[in-house]
Design a protein around this nucleic acid. Sequence first.
DNA 1: GTCTATACACTGATAGAC
DNA 2: GTCTATCAGTGTATAGAC
Lengths: 210, 210
Amino acid sequence: MIETEARERVLNVAERLFSERGYAAVTLRDIADALGIKQASLYYHVPQGKQALFAEVTERGLHRHQHGLEQSISAAAATAGSAIGEQMRAQLNAAAHWLLSQPPLNLSRMTTSDMPELDQEVARQLEQTAYQSLMIPLANIFRQAAHSGKLRRDAAGVAPELMAGTLLASVESLRHLREEYFTRGASTRESQVAQLIDVFIYGLVDQHQE
Amino acid sequence: MIETEARERVLNVAERLFSERGYAAVTLRDIADALGIKQASLYYHVPQGKQALFAEVTERGLHRHQHGLEQSISAAAATAGSAIGEQMRAQLNAAAHWLLSQPPLNLSRMTTSDMPELDQEVARQLEQTAYQSLMIPLANIFRQAAHSGKLRRDAAGVAPELMAGTLLASVESLRHLREEYFTRGASTRESQVAQLIDVFIYGLVDQHQE
DNA sequence: GTCTATACACTGATAGAC
DNA sequence: GTCTATCAGTGTATAGAC
């Protein structure tokens, strides 16, 4: 595999388009058009064709996420106070902030639409990378919180992976929320996600009043 | 439009396949094969072709959801106690239970992959139906809770639509969680979603201990 | 209601010139 | 590195027989 600047451009454009519209909906012509070259020219950079291109940029993106998530989370853990609520808040916000800084993942589309279009072996590999890159770093935040012994009794028994999946899905879904629902206290994606994380940590109801 | 049993079968199969794999990934041949007929025969039942078929079954599914959600939510509200936490828990669980009883929505895939493939007018119409059928009934649960005046101060300011979108995304994401993460207290989708809803309502941390 | 046959466009992919 | 030319395969859609 040749590693040139031109090839990088191809991968970047392909990653953006695939992540925006999915595997089946993006044609090689779409990618070539966006690059200002002809469809056949793509095969110079990616001789193994469309599926290999998709697998490569997806894999690359997932690893970038793993790196970015681990970095942001451990940096947040280092600076936050030691109270468990504060720790979680800092780490979850850092993770969410990272996710929002990147092209959308559309994990559920990847599972339901993209994967079935790929050869089984390729799909299996991507699924495993997604699990290791996204699920593990996020689930660790919740696992760590559960070990602190300071969670609500019921909450401590919730699978960390369940919370991690929920967080992922929630952050991604924010991207599709119309701007009309940005209210006073939350006029940006970041502040919306911060509100959401506070709900995860402290709940909706006022337990002292009820 | 002819309304026969045979046509119903076509719509049902099409709805299932589209909802499983998305617009672009499902071909008319796939649908015909699943019905045991030839691709061209579909045009007897759906003369306007693939896009119209997708629009019809999607619209139909969304209206079914609206009806089902409104029913389950108001039934739950009637039987639950009056404490706001209890009310929300009952209504949210009823809504989630309904969502899990139906074919997956994959709303985010619909937004990012399916919609861009459709004529703008068709896409606009579907988006509006989705909003009215899903968003409004769910957001009303949170709106009602906020009006009770018994939510956490910060939580009362969170846009109901934000919470509704989060709930939707979370419930749908549960479908893709591997079974290995079904833990002791939550061995079914329903019990997982119940845990999740309790987190929304009461939070993760024990506020009396911290 | 379902079929065969077919038109027509598009897609992924290969070969070879420059 | 990018192009033109081309092909086989597949997708939607139409026409007309049964």
